[in-house]
Design a protein around this nucleic acid. Structure first.
Lengths: 186, 186
DNA sequence: AAAAATAAGTCAACATGACTGACATAAATG
DNA sequence: CATTTATGTCAGTCATGTTGACTTATTTTT
């Protein structure tokens, strides 16, 4: 038994939180994320896709020329799991594969026109939601929100993710030079 | 084709973002959440449970006396899905059910001692992670982070969630009066 | 008191996306 | 030539979600 007085029937009273505001953040993060993924999920249904497809497509769209190994590294799923959704995306013309120029074992991944469009369609409601939330929080809040989210990433990955965000900005095709892979969404 | 000049082979160049900082937030949210759920996931394995169990147990622990209908309402999953994990949690002694005092159709849900302890064990790393991230972002950041996360919740649910967070603070048992249900985690 | 509505539980069937572990192929590297 | 690497694949399993129809107990409404 804990410090709380237990009911005679073995039930437990609600937990007395040492820092209620932090627990609120924990729970708000759940709700925020739940709704953050809702709109894309709805869109995906029409394409017969699921979340996994979104992740992969988002990555590849933001990082044309990304390798399978890079995806595995960031999604942290198994080859099997990735292989299944990737194959579907390729078969249905959303992603195309190409042998690496310098290392022909590699399969470089690129979004097709369709893939690019779907990726945009999926991320649009997420950007809109974030944009509105930032505005409603006061524009100056953006800095601390970004800081907070970065700090939420486990220390071992933090720098890596930082680089991914950077290289995501440098637009151009990366088919010749590996380039750091970058973040998915959801 | 979009405004970007497509490669001759049908590949698409990386997307030129209208507001790169917002897209960063979108992706950081993914990474933050990914790592936010990692530690509880690891713990759950030892109990033969998954994320669904975490959600249900968290709810019930924070809201003793919650009804099945309340859980369904907030988790937004089907009775079948909830039923499966709830049954496991009951069978293995983490949650107990009791007919409502005023309305005996209801099944009021309560954490047992074990359930209470597991819920605490699961939320602990999440609180720790949030606490550290808040501190590293400057303590004054907490306000705008909370604002932001609240605004990320879809408008239709925002007030409801606000109430849930409130009632979660009022500690006591709610077996006689329904009380607003409250937020899960993850 | 009979009828309707509500809370919960249940059945059967199914889809998605994750897992494991072993193995195959092609190509690069030593 | 041997080894390592990048990728793909086979076969099977599990967790968690879905749908829709139906039952039971109980409360509420007419």
């Amino acid at each position: 038994m804990t410090s709380d007085t237990p009911s005679p029937n073995g039930r437990q009273p609600a937990h007395q939180d040492p820092e209620p505001a932090l627990l609120d953040l924990v729970e708000l993060l759940f709700f925020a994320y739940r709704d953050f993924t809702r709109e894309p999920d709805k869109i995906l249904v029409d394409f017969g896709f699921g979340r996994a497809h979104h992740r992969v497509l988002h990555f590849v769209n933001r990082h044309p020329g990304m390798r399978v190994a890079d995806l595995l590294d960031i999604l942290k799923i198994t080859k099997q799991s990735l292989g299944r959704v990737l194959k579907q995306l390729v078969d249905e013309g959303f992603i195309l594969q190409e042998a690496g120029k310098t290392d022909r074992r590699e399969r470089r991944l690129y979004p097709t026109q369709r893939g690019h469009e779907l990726a945009e369609q999926l991320v649009a409601p997420q950007i809109k939601r974030v944009a509105r939330a930032v505005e409603a929080s006061g524009k100056e809040a953006q800095t601390c929100i970004e800081k907070f989210l970065r700090q939420m990433i486990r220390e071992a990955d933090r720098e890596h993710v930082g680089k991914l965000l950077e290289t995501g900005k440098t637009h151009g095709d990366v088919s010749t030079k590996p380039a750091q892979p970058r973040g998915p969404v959801r």
